[in-house]
Design a protein around this nucleic acid. Sequence first.
DNA 1: CTCCTAACCGATAATAATTATCATTAACAT
DNA 2: ATGTTAATGATAATTATTATCGGTTAGGAG
Lengths: 125, 125
Amino acid sequence: MTRHSRQRDAVYENLCSRFDHPTAEDIYLSLKKEIPDISLATVYRNLALLENEGKIARISCDGTARYDANFSLHAHFVCKICGRVTDIESSGQNLIAEYSEKFEGTIMSQSLIFGGICPECKKIK
Amino acid sequence: MTRHSRQRDAVYENLCSRFDHPTAEDIYLSLKKEIPDISLATVYRNLALLENEGKIARISCDGTARYDANFSLHAHFVCKICGRVTDIESSGQNLIAEYSEKFEGTIMSQSLIFGGICPECKKIK
DNA sequence: CTCCTAACCGATAATAATTATCATTAACAT
DNA sequence: ATGTTAATGATAATTATTATCGGTTAGGAG
């Protein structure tokens, strides 16, 4: 029986409105402007809840968890210089179908992450 | 000037000999049998060092870091029931080349991770 | 072979990320 | 309006990882 809450809506809206694949703390800091007394624990709780509901996705690309509300088939790029995580243009190929053919288990999700140097950091150096 | 050490060799050998993509603690527990007074910090130190030397790879698939000494182009599968991380048969396609075409930065590594239910857990349920 | 020095070690303290606890608040069915 | 209980804020606890530090040792210079 999951109820409605201002904080949960805010977490979800915040994530939907941004494209920088924020960490729990990023979202917490951003939400403090509109809900000054929101707790970091609440952000964690709601991220976990929304993930279980299948409304958002967790991205494991480095030590700390990042989140994404975009469920279109796309890949991520992590810059090893600045640490930013960005979307990277995808051919949109469905790797799940391809890999499922020879696999006895059930594949339900895919995560394709590239690492390297982003366009911005490449210019600087 | 990196020197030789029994502990570092042991960490590397241990990782090479197994295919379960262990965490630092997994390796630590395993090594205690042959080197009873090895320190967990030493395992972490040497994993970081070996990764920097490019001899092993870190896998970010869940919260805790896992390691792999296999550098052949392959994908991973994470079971959401038992948590095991296994290799999954790959077509061996080089996604880096494909994605580099439309990307302004420099792609240096790829990580393809699938999630779902592994063959063993599928049987049980 | 012995000496020197810096890399490495084990033990453990410190930090960072996340989760658990608990008293209070608020959503919402009755 | 009231009762039930999920959700919250504050914070303690836990987990994973990194930093510190005094002692040890690999391995090159003499």
